[in-house]
Amino acid sequence: LAKRGLNVVLISRTLEKLQAMAAEIEETTGSRVKIIQADFTRDDIYDYIKEKLTGLEIGILVNNVGMLPNLLPTYFLHAPDEVQSLIHCNITSVVKMTQLVLKHMESRRKGLILNISSGTALFPWPLYTMYSASKAFVRVFSKALQAEYKAKGIVIQVLTPFAISTPMTKYLNANVITKTADEFVKESLSYVLIGDETCGCLAHEIVASFLNLVPSWATCSSMFQKALLTRYAEYLKQNSSLG
């Protein structure tokens, strides 16, 4: 977005990373960057963020913050006990940040909100139960919100990508299916006006189309779970920093 001439506000938890990213963006694009340090695993940060955003005209909101406590498939009771943090980070953040900017977009009758969900939101995904469910919330929330505000000139799109190589996914090796963050962002911005929902890239649309042909009883079966726990877990270990 900065390369396309927009000034940017970055909101994240680690000040050092924010400062480094802001310096890189300003140096390479010439756009101005404002940083706001906030921990989205908490729910008491939004008055502070609202204060820091005062006076700014936010034309595009990207709700990209998220956490995946267990990259390896794990039964719910064996997963890290970060339930409340995950809800705040993956769900509350989307709702509260949307509240902060949508009212101003409505008054101007223009604006774009991009909410990053996940391919795991397209159907129940056992062994990633909390993550899948939280991203399903983002998907349904976004599509319903677009129905409410489309006539007011606001575009709200939810993205449901599959594998992307990021710190959250332990830098999975990129391939035809697993995209780098740069690859995904560049391609997904081409689909902003395509509709209220997109996987963000052609490869992931093909994966989603294939998975839609699989009946729900199969994806919730013990055989599918066994495959996740063995073959998929081994793939993750061999192709990420977990290995």
Rank of each mutant, 00 (worst) to 15 (best):
Q146F: 13
L189I: 09
K3N: 15
S85N: 14
V33P: 00
A218M: 15
V65T: 15
V214L: 13
A23I: 12
N115P: 09
V101I: 09
S216T: 10
T98Q: 01
I116Q: 03
L236A: 03
F40H: 05
D196P: 15
L56R: 05
I11F: 03
H88K: 07
F141L: 02
G243K: 11
D196E: 11
G119L: 02
T160R: 02
M105Y: 06
K34F: 06
E27G: 10
E187K: 12
S107L: 15
P126Q: 08
K186F: 05
G66R: 02
K152S: 15
L86T: 14
L56Q: 11
A136G: 10
S132A: 04
K34P: 01
E26H: 06
L145D: 00
A136V: 00
L189T: 13
S85I: 02
H204L: 09
G153T: 09
A151C: 07
R42F: 06
H104Y: 12
N70M: 04
G5K: 14
L1M: 15
Y46V: 04
S241H: 07
L202E: 05
G195T: 06
E183P: 01
I206E: 05
E234P: 00
Y171S: 04
V192D: 01
K52F: 03
I49V: 12
D196K: 13
P73N: 06
T198K: 05
A20H: 08
F76Y: 14
L242N: 06
L1P: 04
I25K: 05
P126G: 02
V101D: 07
S134N: 02
E57C: 12
E16G: 11
P73D: 07
F40C: 04
V185M: 08
S188N: 13
D47C: 07
E187V: 14
S209L: 09
D47N: 10
A151W: 03
E57Y: 09
S190M: 11
S132N: 04
K237Q: 11
G200T: 14
V33I: 08
L193D: 15
E51A: 08
R42K: 15
N175H: 04
P80G: 07
S107T: 13
D47R: 13
Y48H: 12
M21T: 15
L77G: 04
I164C: 02
L228T: 06
Q157H: 05
V33T: 09
I177V: 15
Y75W: 09
I60E: 12
E51T: 06
L172N: 00
P215H: 08
V207N: 03
G195Q: 06
R4S: 13
E148V: 13
K17P: 10
A2Y: 10
L213K: 13
G55Y: 01
Q37W: 00
M223N: 05
I58C: 10
K143N: 09
A121I: 04
C199M: 13
L145W: 01
D44R: 02
W217K: 08
F184G: 03
L86Y: 01
A227D: 14
I58R: 11
I116V: 14
N64L: 02
S142A: 12
K52L: 09
C220I: 08
L6P: 00
